Deep mutational scan, measured.
Amino acid sequence: EETYEVDGEEQLKKVEKMLRDRNLDVEVEIHNGKFVIRAK
C-alpha cells in the first residue's frame, strides 16, 4: 500500500491518474484540508 499527501485538486488529479494508470485501487480522503491518497 502506498500513501500520498497532496495539497490542492490539481496535484490530486495528477497523482490519482498516475496510480490508476498502474491499475491500482485508489481511495481519497481529506485530512486537515489535505488530500490523502491511498493506493493498493
Rank of each mutant, 00 (worst) to 15 (best):
E1K: 09
E1Y: 14
E1I: 14
E1L: 12
E1S: 11
E1G: 11
E2W: 15
E2A: 08
E2K: 08
E2C: 15
E2Y: 13
E2D: 06
E2I: 13
E2S: 07
T3K: 10
T3M: 13
T3P: 04
T3Y: 14
T3W: 15
T3V: 15
Y4H: 04
Y4P: 00
Y4E: 03
Y4Q: 02
Y4N: 01
E5W: 14
E5I: 15
E5D: 04
E5F: 13
E5G: 03
E5Y: 14
E5N: 06
V6Y: 04
V6L: 08
V6D: 03
D7K: 07
D7G: 05
D7H: 10
D7Y: 14
D7I: 13
D7M: 12
G8T: 15
G8L: 10
G8K: 05
G8E: 07
G8M: 07
G8R: 06
G8C: 15
G8D: 15
E9Y: 14
E9T: 09
E9W: 15
E9H: 09
E9F: 13
E9M: 12
E10K: 05
E10F: 08
E10M: 07
E10D: 11
E10A: 09
E10R: 05
E10V: 08
E10I: 07
Q11E: 14
Q11A: 12
Q11D: 12
Q11N: 10
Q11R: 05
Q11L: 12
Q11H: 05
L12D: 01
L12H: 03
L12Q: 02
L12I: 04
L12C: 15
L12W: 08
L12N: 02
L12K: 08
L12F: 09
K13I: 10
K13G: 06
K13Q: 10
K13A: 12
K13D: 05
K14A: 13
K14Y: 12
K14S: 07
K14W: 13
K14N: 07
K14F: 11
K14M: 13
K14P: 02
K14H: 09
V15H: 02
V15S: 00
V15Y: 11
V15F: 10
V15G: 00
V15L: 14
V15K: 03
E16I: 15
E16K: 13
K17T: 06
K17Q: 11
K17P: 00
K17Y: 01
K17E: 07
M18K: 03
M18A: 08
M18W: 15
M18H: 04
M18G: 01
M18N: 03
M18Y: 12
M18F: 13
L19P: 00
L19E: 00
L19W: 04
L19H: 01
L19Q: 00
L19C: 14
L19K: 00
R20F: 08
R20I: 05
R20H: 06
R20M: 08
R20T: 05
R20V: 03
R20G: 03
D21S: 12
D21M: 13
D21Y: 09
D21H: 09
D21P: 00
D21G: 09
R22N: 05
R22C: 15
R22G: 03
R22Q: 06
R22H: 05
R22W: 09
N23E: 07
N23S: 08
N23F: 12
N23I: 02
N23Y: 10
N23R: 09
N23A: 06
N23P: 01
L24F: 13
L24S: 01
L24C: 15
L24R: 04
L24H: 05
L24Y: 12
L24K: 05
L24E: 02
L24M: 14
D25H: 14
D25P: 04
D25K: 12
D25L: 14
D25T: 13
V26P: 05
V26I: 12
V26Q: 01
V26C: 14
V26N: 02
E27D: 08
E27L: 12
E27Q: 12
V28M: 04
V28N: 00
V28W: 07
V28Y: 06
V28L: 04
E29H: 11
E29L: 12
E29M: 11
E29Y: 14
E29P: 01
I30C: 14
I30L: 09
I30D: 07
I30P: 04
I30M: 10
H31G: 05
H31Y: 13
H31P: 02
H31A: 09
H31K: 13
H31W: 12
H31T: 09
H31V: 15
N32E: 08
N32G: 10
N32L: 05
N32F: 07
N32I: 04
N32Y: 05
N32R: 04
G33I: 02
G33Q: 00
G33A: 02
G33Y: 04
G33W: 03
G33T: 00
G33P: 02
G33C: 14
G33M: 02
K34P: 01
K34G: 08
K34W: 10
K34S: 07
K34F: 09
F35P: 00
F35M: 08
F35Q: 01
V36S: 02
V36A: 02
V36L: 13
V36F: 12
I37P: 00
I37F: 04
I37A: 02
I37T: 02
I37M: 01
I37N: 00
I37W: 03
R38W: 06
R38C: 10
R38E: 00
R38D: 00
R38M: 04
R38P: 00
R38Q: 02
A39P: 04
A39N: 03
A39M: 09
A39Y: 11
A39G: 08
A39V: 15
A39T: 10
A39R: 04
K40V: 12
K40Q: 06
K40R: 13
K40F: 12
